[in-house]
């Protein structure tokens, strides 16, 4: 049938037929057409350096920071969280699963959890003071902002006074949840409004669609 033709023509790159795409739609906030539009985006990102249908770290870096090099703490974390199978590349299903968390209609609980794992740099199950300091320093460096160490410590003290309810110097999952629910603006970067209009951002999916919704 049509799908066999696609497979032969594009080898491994078009492994995602209608069945896989609708499966991804079922397990996410996305419709089949939106998953198809995401597939257009995925194809673009996954062929920017090595055209193999997988997103490598350098490709994610290139998309996010317009340069395939330059070290970035957050890129490492984002890549790590997107790469569910931990095999060093982002596959399309992983891409959809991760972006699903950033959907405007995704449960807040999922966003809270994703942000926690993002900030738990060493994956100890806690956001530690040192990690927070490391992240703030990274941000100050990239934005050429200068802050004295005293001021930096004061900001972190104040943050921990608010977030670290049991005062043990680290923020656990429950404390994080309480903290974020009191400061919902901290989750703003966990929502990408674009995902609601992904089919208009990537209208070219129409040429490849297998369903009309």
């Amino acid at each position: 049938g049509c799908c066999d033709f696609h497979k032969n023509k594009h080898h491994k790159k078009l492994r995602y037929g209608f069945r896989e795409l609708s499966q991804l739609a079922r397990e996410s906030q996305f419709t089949v057409n939106e998953v198809e539009a995401l597939y257009e985006l995925f194809k673009k990102l996954s062929s920017s350096i090595i055209d193999d249908g997988l997103i490598h770290k350098e490709e994610l870096q290139l998309a996010l920071f317009k340069s395939p090099h330059s070290e970035n703490l957050f890129l490492d974390r984002v890549f790590y969280l997107f790469d569910e199978k931990k095999n060093g590349v982002i596959e399309f299903d992983e891409f959809v699963h991760a972006l699903n968390v950033f959907h405007p209609y995704a449960p807040t609980e999922d966003k809270i959890d994703f942000a926690f794992r993002l900030y738990d740099l060493r994956q100890t199950g806690f956001i530690e003071r040192e990690e927070v300091k490391q992240m703030v320093i990274a941000i100050l460096l990239e934005s050429d902002m200068n802050l004295s160490d005293d001021l930096l410590e004061a900001i972190i003290d104040k943050t921990f006074a608010d977030a670290d309810a049991d005062n043990d110097g680290k923020i656990n999952k429950e404390e994080w949840k309480d903290f974020v629910l009191r400061h919902p603006n901290l989750l703003k970067n966990m929502t990408l409004p674009y995902l609601k209009d992904i089919t208009t951002v990537f209208p070219s999916f129409v040429f490849n669609t297998e369903v009309e919704e």
């Binding site: 984002v78 990239e142 943050t159 989750l187």
Partner: peptide
């Protein structure tokens, strides 16, 4: 004044933390 800001506010506002660039905006 910056002391009134919480550390996670700084982090979450950072450009690095914005995945919007994925869409090639």
């Amino acid at each position: 004044k910056p002391v009134s800001m919480n550390a996670f506010e700084l982090i979450s506002r950072s450009q690095s933390f914005n995945l919007e660039n994925l869409f090639g905006k």
